[in-house]
């Protein structure tokens, strides 16, 4: 009979796959004429006094690495992990933020379509078992990540429908709702062709680049500056945003202007956040809260080990 084991290896091992990279298109495939036909000039943002903004984000953690010891098929790798997704809601008047819509899910994921229920755990912990068809262990974390993104997208959609202007951390996905803006902090690839590149040194906080189109599935994108950090280069203090291609150009321009005007006020400071200024204050705070909602890693790990040890041999 197949038996479930919790591996001694640290759960973090092999977990650092940047799963959002795959969403980024290759450089040089963009359309710079979506908004402006001609040379690029910085565009001033416009704060349209939108009353409420939702910052949506999620975090995940691999709680343990699992192995199903199948006498016939040999060892089948799996992971179990927890993720939390939620939103910081900012209201303009009076200016206050709060964390809401938090969801915590715990998953056990196995390769090769295998599945094994996690035995009952103490502290009321409950893991849902899923499996991926592939035999590639790298797919485990990827699947886990996708599940978190799905939860984030659901929260974003829900909030957008309730009238919030939603800024979601990371690129938008196919699941993104119509009025959701994706917020990308890091620039591993510059999408701009050389002829428009000089604009990056000239946009100031509160301004943005003209919109540009992205291939693969259709998205609008633009850069904006949060701050001009002392001693920074022309790209420091810059973030990229995305909006769904299903929107009209006029709608996206409103969203883009709003982000350019509004987001600088949420920028974090370098002595407080190592990812400043791009890691916005509401998102940083949300991540901190979400992490505490995941529960103590050691308690969970111990509960998993206890439960698997108790199985009949």
């Amino acid at each position: 009979m197949a038996r479930l084991f919790v591996e001694e290896w640290s759960p973090e091992y092999g977990a650092s796959v940047d799963t959002d990279e795959s969403l980024a298109p290759a450089a040089g495939q963009i359309d710079t004429t979506v908004e402006v036909d001609g040379p690029w000039e910085p565009i001033d943002g416009h704060d349209d006094d939108f009353p409420a903004v939702a910052f949506v984000d999620g975090i995940r953690r691999v709680d343990a690495r699992l192995t199903i010891d199948d006498p016939a098929a040999g060892p089948i790798p799996g992971i179990c992990g927890s993720f939390a997704a939620g939103a910081t809601l900012w209201r303009r008047d009076p200016p206050r933020s709060e964390v809401e819509s938090v969801r915590v899910e715990r998953l056990a994921i196995f390769t090769e379509g295998a599945a094994s229920d996690i035995p009952p755990l103490s502290h009321g912990l409950l893991y849902r078992t899923e499996s991926v068809g592939s035999s590639d262990p790298g797919m485990l974390v990827s699947h886990f990540h996708t599940q978190m993104r799905r939860a984030e997208a659901e929260i974003a959609l829900d909030l957008a429908r309730s009238g919030y202007f939603v800024v979601a951390d990371g690129p938008i996905s196919e699941l993104a709702a119509e009025s959701v803006v994706g917020y990308i902090k890091s620039h591993r690839v510059s999408y701009l062709p050389p002829e428009v590149m000089p604009i990056m040194g000239r946009i100031e906080p509160g301004q943005r680049t003209p919109l540009f189109g992205m291939p693969s599935y259709k998205r609008y994108s633009w850069y904006l500056r949060l701050t001009r950090p002392a001693g920074g280069h022309s790209w420091s203090g810059i973030v990229r945003c995305e909006a769904p291609g299903s929107l009209s150009l006029a709608q996206v321009k409103v969203l883009a202007d709003r982000t350019a005007a509004l987001l600088p006020r949420f920028a974090s400071e370098p002595h407080i956040d190592p990812r400043a200024p791009q890691n916005l204050v509401p998102i940083g705070a949300l991540e901190k809260q979400l992490r505490s909602r995941l529960g103590d890693q050691h308690i969970i790990y111990r509960a998993l080990r206890e439960a698997t040890m108790r199985q009949p041999t």
Binding site: W90, R91, P95, S97, V99, I272, L280, V281, Q289
Partner: peptide, 19 residues
């Protein structure tokens, strides 16, 4: 939720930090 003294402003004045 405030870990720095200046977070007080972020929470109470700008409202950008949930606290």
């Amino acid at each position: 939720g405030a870990s720095f003294e200046s977070d007080t402003h972020r929470i109470a004045a700008d409202g950008i930090l949930p606290g």
